[in-house]
Every structure is written in structure tokens, then in C-alpha cells.
């Protein structure tokens, strides 16, 4: 039986690698954001995972309106990206790791038996939603990855409850895998943002908007039932056109049964949209449940 050993929520802003390049010259809040990635990188290494299940939205890079899967599993030989145009436009670095095909196929097959019709792809490129967190959290590129794509951009998008249930199902399916694997789940998403929309610079006037404050409070207290129920695409879009990317954090909440994280750091500033870092040691979560 396999075990989920860590669940992490991290941002994927493609301008963050540029902050690292700025070094000491970078604004203090952004240096804190990089510091939280450093902390979680050490934490992930200490958890000794064998496999990384990475969950992210795609940003019209791999998927477009000609073919828009709601939930899709990548099962190519490699988990590699990002696209050349992303590297040119943002200066983000490549990532190229093995893909854990056995786990990917297990999730695909058992998902179908449970009523989850994942799409799949044997030929894809991971966009920055995957590669930015992976580069920060596992720069060695030595652990096999299973990518799960979620559509959080091109409506219709399923309601938060579906993302929550998917997160719970993924954990059950991983635990039913016969190999003795230690699996870490990395959910790549964000809090409010309006990238590309007229409100894109809203954080410069209001770094911590009321939705972010309320959402963070609910997550850190483990008071998530109402949050999940309210996290539908339309409500999140009203907060900012990119905010439905929060649904991948809702996926993570489902993976941990809505419990409070044991690591929670938020950075809100006038330099970038707010970033939220969350982590759950799911081995102690289970011990607590059993007690």
C-alpha cells in the first residue's frame, strides 16, 4: 500500500524565478516568498517521497479551445516543460523529470471505476504552473512526477466541491496502489489575482483583499466546509479573473479532509499578487485520526 506523506500548496507565478535572479536587490516581501519555497523544499526532501503528484491548471499553453479537458492525467515517458514561448516571455527555466507511468495509469483506471473520467495524454508539455513549483521544490529533477491537469481557466469549470472530492479520491486511489510508495502531492495554484484582466494591478492598491483575508482565516482554522461550498468559478472570477486558480488549493483541501495545515505562510504586498504556502504532514494527520 502506498502512502501520501505530504500535501503542499504553493504558487506558480512565472515572475518568481526572476526574483531569485535579483538576489539581494529583490523587494523584501518577494524574498520572503522565495524563503517559503526554500522551507518547503527542505520539508519535502525530509519527507523522502518516491513520487510527486503535481496538480495545476494549464494557462492556454498545453490545452486550448479545440480540446479542453476538465481533469487530465499526463502519462508520457517524461514530465517536462515549460513551453519555449514561456521561457522566452518570462525567463522561466526548463524542468525534465521521469514520469511515474504506473501510478498515472493506476489513477486513470481506478478513477474510471469510481466515476471519474479523466482525460489522458501521452504527448504534452507541462506549463509554468507545474515547472515553477517543481523547480523550486525539487530542483534535482530526480523524482518521478505524475501531472494532473485541471481546467481552472476556460469555463465551464466544475464547482469547488468537485475539486475537493477529486483531492479526496486521489488520496484513496494512491493508498490503494499495491506498491509501497511514499507520495507527495503538490497543488499549484494561488489566492486572488487578475492576471491579464483590467484589475491585474489591484494588489498594488489593496495587497490583502477581503476575500484573501477571509479565505486564509478559514483555511488556517480548518473551517473549510463553507469555503469549499462557496468556491465556484463565478464567485472566484468576481474576486479577480485568475482567482479560479484557487480551485487547485481546494483540491488539496480535499486531500487532507479539510483539516488545518501545520504550515501556513501568506505574503501580501504591493509587489506581486498574494502568495499562499500551505503544508500538511499527512502521516501525523492519520495518526491523529486513529487516536
Amino acid at each position: 500500500m502506498s502512502t501520501v506523506v505530504q500535501v503542499l500548496c504553493v504558487p506558480h507565478d512565472p515572475t518568481l524565478p526572476g526574483v531569485v535572479a535579483q538576489g539581494a536587490e529583490a523587494p523584501e516581501p518577494l524574498k520572503r516568498t522565495i524563503g517559503h519555497f526554500d522551507t518547503l523544499r527542505a520539508r519535502l526532501a525530509a519527507a523522502r517521497p518516491d513520487v510527486l503528484v503535481a496538480v495545476s491548471g494549464d494557462h492556454f499553453n498545453q490545452w486550448f479551445y479545440d480540446n479542453m479537458p476538465t481533469f487530465s492525467i499526463g502519462k508520457a515517458l517524461r514530465a517536462a516543460g515549460p513551453f519555449p514561448h514561456e521561457q522566452e516571455l518570462f525567463g522561466v527555466s526548463p524542468y525534465d523529470a521521469a514520469l511515474e507511468g504506473d501510478v498515472a495509469r493506476h489513477l486513470l483506471r481506478t478513477g474510471m471505476r469510481r466515476g471519474i473520467d479523466f482525460s489522458y495524454s501521452d504527448d504534452f508539455v507541462l506549463d509554468h504552473g507545474f515547472t515553477v513549483p517543481l523547480n523550486f521544490l525539487r530542483p534535482e529533477q530526480d523524482l518521478p512526477v505524475v501531472p494532473i491537469f485541471t481546467n481552472v481557466m476556460a469555463p465551464p469549470v466544475p464547482p469547488g466541491q468537485r475539486f475537493y472530492e477529486l483531492g479526496a479520491s486521489i488520496v484513496e486511489m494512491i493508498e490503494a496502489h499495491p506498491a509501497d510508495l511514499r507520495v507527495a502531492i503538490i497543488a499549484s495554484g494561488h489566492l486572488s489575482n487578475a492576471i491579464g484582466g483590467p484589475q491585474m494591478a489591484q494588489f498594488m492598491q489593496q495587497p490583502d483583499n477581503p476575500w484573501d483575508l477571509r479565505t486564509w482565516d478559514r483555511i488556517t482554522r480548518g473551517d473549510t466546509a463553507a469555503l469549499v461550498a462557496e468556491s465556484d468559478y463565478e464567485s472566484l472570477l468576481a474576486v479577480g479573473s485568475g482567482t479560479p486558480g484557487f480551485l487547485d488549493y481546494v483540491f488539496a483541501l480535499g486531500a487532507v479532509g479539510g483539516s488545518a495545515p501545520d504550515y501556513a505562510e501568506k505574503v501580501a504586498s504591493t509587489f506581486a499578487p498574494p502568495t499562499g504556502f500551505l503544508a500538511w504532514d499527512t502521516t501525523t494527520l492519520r495518526t491523529a485520526e486513529a487516536a
Binding site: 492556454f60 525567463g91 492576471i195 491579464g196 484582466g197 491585474m200
Partner: peptide
Amino acid sequence: VHPFVLYHFALRLAGGFSMPFIQQYL
């Protein structure tokens, strides 16, 4: 046009991300 498709298109024509680009775009 979806804001993200628009943003990427404008970024390409501008040659890449910068704060002056964001100001001009917005």
C-alpha cells in the same frame, strides 16, 4: 477574448514581461 490569451499575445508583441509593459497594457 479571454484575458489570459490577450495577456500572452500582448506579452509576445512586447517581447516579454516587464513592469512598464504591465502599465502600458493595463
